[in-house]
């Protein structure tokens, strides 16, 4: 079975306060989201809601969010993942969708977010 792969690199401009990461997969989809800050794992869950830390310590670091999503919506064959970053000053939402070629197909999303 082919696995679709979505690779993206994004930038997030850090503000002040603490950086909050939220991520979830689309409705009726099985998915596991894992996140790393540089090489340190931040956690794995079906949906993440994580305070990463004070932004002043994060500048120049790389946030990696990887999700394996399996679509169970036979009618749409589309998977999606949403990543939401927010701090006291800025917030940004990244949404990605990818069609799968067969029912129940899987997509691996690899999102690298450079914190600047």
């Amino acid at each position: 079975m082919p696995i679709e792969r979505v690779n993206k690199t994004e930038q997030y401009e850090l503000g002040t306060g603490s950086l909050q990461l939220r991520a979830w997969v689309g409705y009726n989809q099985f998915g596991t989201i894992s996140a790393w800050l540089n090489q340190q794992p931040l956690g794995t869950a079906n949906s993440l809601d994580k305070t990463i830390g004070p932004v002043k310590q994060l500048s120049g670091k790389r946030l990696v969010v990887i999700s394996t999503v399996q679509d169970i919506m036979a009618s749409t064959n589309t998977t999606s993942i949403t990543i939401e970053l927010s701090d006291g000053t800025n917030s940004k939402t990244y949404t990605y969708t990818q069609a799968v070629s067969v029912n129940g197909g899987a997509v691996i999303y690899s999102i690298i977010i450079n914190l600047i």
Binding site: F30, I66, Q70, I108
Partner: peptide, 27 residues
């Protein structure tokens, strides 16, 4: 029952490992 923890675990345990391997792929 699609929402039981057992079902989700069955479906996602492998997914967790795939995520780790994907991260290592980037590394």
């Amino acid at each position: 029952n699609v929402s039981t923890a057992q079902n989700v675990r069955n479906m996602t345990r492998n997914g967790t490992l795939i995520n780790i391997i994907q991260f290592v792929s980037l590394q």
